[in-house]
């Protein structure tokens, strides 16, 4: 019986999570779309050159750079901000899952969830790319 109850508690949380994810995707894609319009308005006649990857010439590749670019209303910075929102969408799902495990007093899974979150945050700390 308690298992069934758990299933439905899980289900409620999942419905909320599903809505959150959809909102996250729609919001981030709207930002990307707006950024795209701004980007096209100012850069449409430039020539593209993507034939060789060069990490040095990349702009807006850190969170702080993106926010600085946003202040100048740069199209590419707005796009990258949308990308950032999108990346954070599934990460929020992990955070909410940890809370739902906490409510269920399932501490083993609080620990597992926290570990997964730490792995992602470690990646966010920008120590991995030289």
């Amino acid at each position: 019986m308690s298992k069934e109850k758990n299933f439905f508690a899980d289900r409620d949380i999942q419905v909320i999570l599903g809505t959150l994810l959809r909102v996250g995707v729609i919001a981030s894609m709207t930002v990307v779309f707006i950024g795209g319009l701004v980007y096209l308005a100012f850069n449409h006649s430039e020539m593209v050159n993507y034939s060789h990857f060069d990490s040095v010439k990349a702009g807006f590749s850190t969170v702080s750079d993106i926010f600085i670019g946003l202040g100048h209303l740069k199209g590419s910075a707005i796009i990258q901000f949308g990308v950032l929102l999108l990346i954070f969408t599934p990460i929020m799902r992990v955070v909410f899952s940890i809370f739902s495990f906490l409510i269920e007093r399932d501490y083993l899974y609080v620990l597992i969830g926290a570990f997964v979150l730490c792995v992602i945050l470690f990646s966010l700390s920008n120590k991995l790319v030289g």
């Binding site: 796009i79 969408t89 920008n126």
Partner: peptide, 26 residues
């Protein structure tokens, strides 16, 4: 989604996510 977010952060920091390509692709 979670797995992709983990590697996307690394790509972003390295400059592999170019707004000019990521925008139309996404």
């Amino acid at each position: 989604g979670v797995t992709a977010a983990a590697s996307a952060i690394v790509y972003l920091h390295r400059g592999q996510i170019d707004p000019g390509i990521a925008m139309p692709v996404a």
